[in-house]
Design a protein around this nucleic acid. Structure first.
Lengths: 228, 228
DNA sequence: GAGCGGAATATTGTCTACAGTATTTCATAG
DNA sequence: CTATGAAATACTGTAGACAATATTCCGCTC
């Protein structure tokens, strides 16, 4: 037993370079979500390879993964194109997100420990503080962390992974809007915590559903007014 | 306008072989689901390539995709291993499937046309016939088609894709059990059709949830008794 | 006999090269 | 001037080769 005297899990894993395709994947995903690569744009493998200083092979594997995850469309013998979200698709994604988040809230209400609940309260306080100081970036980050925490408390890894995927896509579609609903959103978060702490599964589900639905409507408002 | 006199959409698309990686992907997925490749087994790229008569490159891309979809685990510098499902993971997948199917039933109740409902009835009749004649294979197929039809009537492509993925995994985990619940299952299907036809979203949701939950319990029964 | 160390083997990760296919360009006929 | 068709171009799809890394096996020491 070598691990006898080691401080449990704190092994730094001695950061290895890791497969190139991973880094290429993350780099491309970043370029897509930040809109450096715009929807509909044709991605040429050799260009990407040259730009990232690697061969075409890791690029191809990264594109393959991005394709299965829905970020790009891989047309045969033609190459990769950044996916162009339609109104319909965005709406469907929002629906699914609502479904997944609501279920997460229900499971959190069923399973959350008091420690977990206090963590939620901490995150909530951070978010409220960010809103008070008009720090949009911090507020967005706190919001994401809060929802991730609820998801974690739900304790369903499959659900978590799906929600992660769907959430990323939703954020991508709506980042040009990127409006924060501000104070009201965090009031709803507080209500959610109360429902979870009370072990009220039905109420937690309803609050989360209403909450994400509010966000969805706020997207649509801005959307129609901006789609001139 | 060239398409003026063409009989709308009936263009056969003149079936092309399609990319090799696609065919390799399907071949491998088939080998996994049929358990020709067993969970935990180490997949050697060169072996697969030789066995399928192609180079390693298409195999790698197929493995890449299978990895992101959760069929295999791709350990760095070590290769691909067929994923080993744990009890916990299987249970989580069943939970998520229940969630997705129930939502599909709700949406179907909201959106289904009378044409769609009669299609459901046709499939239901086929399934009942298969059960009467003890044709297990046909019954399983009819069951899959029925659920797929409900999903289609829901009209949410994102939901459909997720359910497809999750459903395939669930079936894979539980094929060694592969027990058909028989007649009772189709009675529940009939009830579901009635609820959808009545546009009763709540009832459709509940019936589908109960239905998939029954299936889940039947899995667990067999599972504990067989895990000697 | 058990444990450690090092060479040999096997497999993955990456790169380069070639073949197949779609797109574009340009010349030519009407 | 427009439309047609063929050649040129550019990119993807596939294959093969080399380098890096993990695993295995065998000999050595204690």
């Amino acid at each position: 037993m070598l691990s006898a005297g080691l401080p449990q899990g704190s092994v730094p894993k001695l950061e290895r370079p890791g497969p190139l395709r991973e880094r290429v994947y993350e780099a491309l995903l970043d370029l897509i979500t930040t809109r450096a690569l715009r929807p509909g744009q044709h991605l040429v493998e050799s260009e990407l390879a040259g730009h990232l200083g690697v061969s075409r092979q890791p690029v191809r594997e990264a594109l393959q993964r991005l394709n299965t995850e829905g970020w790009i469309d891989l047309r045969p013998a033609q190459g990769a194109f950044v996916h162009e979200p339609t109104e319909e698709e965005a709406d469907q994604l929002l629906s699914v997100r609502t479904l997944l988040e609501a279920e997460a809230a229900r499971l959190a209400a069923a399973n959350a420990t008091s420690a977990g609940i206090s963590e939620l309260e901490t995150l909530c306080a951070q978010g409220e503080g960010a809103v008070r100081e008009d720090d949009v970036e911090a507020a967005v980050a706190a919001n994401a962390e809060f929802h991730a925490k609820v998801m974690q408390l739900a304790g369903n890894a499959v659900l978590t992974e799906l929600a992660e995927q769907v959430g990323r896509r939703v954020r991508w579609y709506y980042t040009p809007i990127a409006r924060q609903r501000g104070k009201q959103s965090w009031i709803e978060h507080r209500e959610l915590i109360a429902a979870i702490a009370a072990r009220d599964e039905q109420k937690a589900t309803d609050i989360m559903r209403t909450h994400t639905e509010h966000t969805r409507l706020s997207y649509h408002e801005r959307d129609t007014s901006a789609s001139v």
